[in-house]
Write a protein that binds this DNA or RNA. Structure first.
Lengths: 123, 123
DNA sequence: AAATCAGGGTTACAGGTGTAAACTATAGAT
DNA sequence: ATCTATAGTTTACACCTGTAACCCTGATTT
């Protein structure tokens, strides 16, 4: 369960399937990704690459290979989030929020409250 | 000022320079990016690509070309944010936050307050 | 004038990513 | 026994991205 870097956007979608249902067979992955528009080949490539990256592993069973995520969902999300924040908001949750709040329907007072909590959160 | 897609991570850093000081000359961009470790060539490539993507434009002056961002900083940030949220949190600010809060030092009560505001925000 | 340097244009090149076909083995369907 | 659908392995290929060199020109230095 270590830090595997550089999971691409498409690969991420495959991982999501496995986070949702670890131990899926390839057929189940296919079904889950039916809406993606990807061909079977494409899905297999993504699975292959994730395996090569160490982001998933398989277990042999009589039914075929079961696929398991080798990275933690929450941790992966947090890593991505940190990277995103650094990249776009210079690491500041506050900046992110002052941006998000603009589009929202919070009152000024609520927005202020929110920002206060975020400041506290960021320490 | 339209939606220019696919600004890469490196290109973004160049844009940041221009958002900060629109109309910079190439030398100023270089100086601003001195800490990046990029060679002059690299910086010019990034500028070139941004130009090709329509994300910046130039104005000729006796001093040389001035470089201007052609995309709005806040809007670009919001676009990136939306993309990120969709990709990682299924579009939900709430999920993002319930994740962020975990690492924070907010009390349970504060966290709850925060989540309440976010729910209101998301509508 | 010759050498040097910043600016501008063109070209390069490897690794990552999206997207998939080709081929092979196998197991269930007929 | 044969055909066909599914799984698995290998290979492909174009575009994006990070990173940069090469070459030309005009300005500045010596």
């Amino acid at each position: 369960m270590e830090n595997v870097k550089n999971i691409s956007e498409s690969e991420w979608k495959v991982l999501e399937v496995l986070w949702d249902k670890p131990g899926s067979l390839i057929g189940e992955i296919r079904t889950a990704l039916a809406g993606s528009g990807w061909s079977y080949s494409t899905i297999k490539t993504l699975v292959l690459r994730l395996t090569q990256k160490g982001a998933l592993y398989t277990k042999e069973t009589p039914q075929g290979k079961e696929y398991y995520p080798a990275v933690d969902e929450d941790k992966s999300r947090r890593d991505e989030t940190k990277h995103f924040l650094d990249r776009i908001y210079n690491g500041s949750v506050r900046m992110l929020f002052s941006n998000l709040v603009k589009d929202s329907k919070l009152s000024d007072k609520e927005a202020e409250e929110l920002m206060g909590l975020i400041d506290k959160m960021e320490d």
